[in-house]
C-alpha cells in the first residue's frame, strides 16, 4: 500500500499581517507549524503502513523552510519527502496549487492512496483534496473520521456529515481528506527527526522545471481567483452597557433581546417579554 500524504506548513498565530499589494499573508516572523489536520492524515497513513506495509511519501508545496514539516513527518515515520518549491509557485490559489501538486504526484511512480487533511488553518478552503483528486481522475472521500478497512482494491471509510455519518467504499487509488481530531497523532521520534536533517535523508526538492510546468500556469500567474481587498472586520455592535440593579439589568437585557430580530427565536425570551408586557398593562 503506497501512500502519498499531502502536507502544508501554516502560520500558527493570530497576529496576522498582510502584504498591502497582493493581500497575501506575510509569513516572515511567524512561527510555522504542520497544518493540524495533516497530522491526522499522516497518522492514518502510518497506521495503514503498519498493517499493510508499503511506503509513505510526503508532498508539500511551499518555501524552502517548509522542509521542516517534511522532516517532522519523517520523524513521525514517513519514508520520503518531496518539497515543491519555486518562486514561481508563490501566491497560488487552490486551482494553481492543485495543478502543481497534481503534476508532481503524476511524476511519483505509483500510489494506492492519497491522504490529506480536510483543510488548512490559513485558508480553511478544503478545496485542494477534491481538486487534486479530479486532476488525477481518482475518486475522493472528504470529511473522513475513520478508515475501517483497506484492501488491494478498495478502502472503506467513515465520513462525517452534519447530521450523522456515512460509511463509504471507494475503489483504489483514491483520495481521502481527514477531519481534524479523527485520531490521535503520534509525536515524532527524535532519531527520525535527526535522520531527516542529514544530507543523505530521502528528501527531494522539485521546481517548476522538475515537474514540467510553465511558470504562467502556476503561482499567482496561474491562479483564477485573486484577492482584491483585505480588511480587518469592524464589529458593528450596539455596545450598550446596561445599568441598574441586578434584577433591572437582567430585565432590560431580556427586553432588548425580545425586540431584536432573530433573537426572538429563543422561546423563553419571547415568552418572558410577553409576560413582562402583560404585567405592565395590568399595572396601567
Amino acid at each position: 500500500m503506497d501512500i502519498v500524504v499531502l502536507v502544508k506548513q501554516v502560520p500558527n498565530t493570530t497576529d496576522v499581517k498582510l502584504d498591502k499589494n497582493t493581500g497575501n499573508l506575510i509569513r516572515e516572523g511567524l512561527e510555522s507549524i504542520m497544518n493540524p489536520d495533516d497530522r491526522n492524515a499522516l497518522e492514518f497513513a502510518l497506521q495503514i503502513k503498519a498493517e499493510y506495509g508499503g511506503t509513505i511519501t510526503m508532498v508539500s508545496m511551499g518555501p524552502p523552510q517548509a522542509v521542516d514539516v517534511l522532516s517532522e513527518a519523517m520523524g513521525m515515520g514517513a519514508d520520503k519527502g518531496l518539497l515543491l518549491s519555486d518562486m514561481a509557485f508563490a501566491g497560488a490559489d487552490t486551482w494553481a496549487t492543485s495543478y502543481t501538486l497534481g503534476k508532481a504526484i503524476e511524476k511519483i511512480e505509483r500510489f494506492d492512496l492519497i491522504i490529506c487533511g480536510r483543510q488548512a488553518i490559513d485558508g480553511d478552503t478544503a478545496q485542494i483534496g477534491p481538486q487534486v483528486a479530479d486532476f488525477l481522475d481518482i475518486p475522493q472521500i472528504t470529511y473522513v473520521t475513520d478508515i475501517e478497512t483497506v484492501s488491494n482494491k478498495e478502502v472503506i471509510v467513515k465520513r462525517r456529515l452534519e447530521d450523522g455519518h456515512e460509511r463509504v467504499a471507494s475503489q483504489l487509488p483514491a483520495l481521502l481528506t481527514i477531519l481534524g481530531g479523527a485520531n490521535n497523532p503520534r509525536y515524532p521520534n527524535i532519531g527520525g527527526l535527526l535522520a531527516a536533517c542529514e544530507e543523505n535523508a530521502p528528501l527531494a526538492a522539485w521546481n517548476a522545471a522538475d515537474i514540467g510546468v510553465m511558470v504562467n500556469d502556476v503561482g499567482l500567474a496561474g491562479s483564477l481567483t485573486h484577492v482584491i481587498k483585505t480588511y480587518v472586520p469592524k464589529f458593528k455592535r450596539q455596545g450598550e452597557t446596561l445599568e441598574g440593579t441586578t434584577a433591572e439589568v437582567v430585565r432590560q437585557l431580556i427586553q432588548h433581546l425580545g425586540k431584536s430580530e432573530g433573537a426572538s427565536a429563543c422561546k423563553a425570551v419571547a415568552a418572558t417579554c410577553r409576560l413582562m408586557a402583560d404585567t405592565k398593562q395590568e399595572g396601567i
Partner: peptide, 29 residues
C-alpha cells in the same frame, strides 16, 4: 467592545437572576 449589550457585574449574580426571570416567562406559556 464586541457586545450589543453589556452587563458589568458578577456572573454568579447575573446569571441566576437571568435564569429566574426567564423561567417565569417560560412557565407562563
Amino acid at each position: 467592545q464586541v457586545a450589543d449589550w453589556g452587563i458589568v457585574g458578577d456572573v454568579t449574580e447575573i446569571v441566576p437572576e437571568l435564569i429566574e426571570q426567564l423561567k417565569q416567562g417560560r412557565e407562563n406559556v
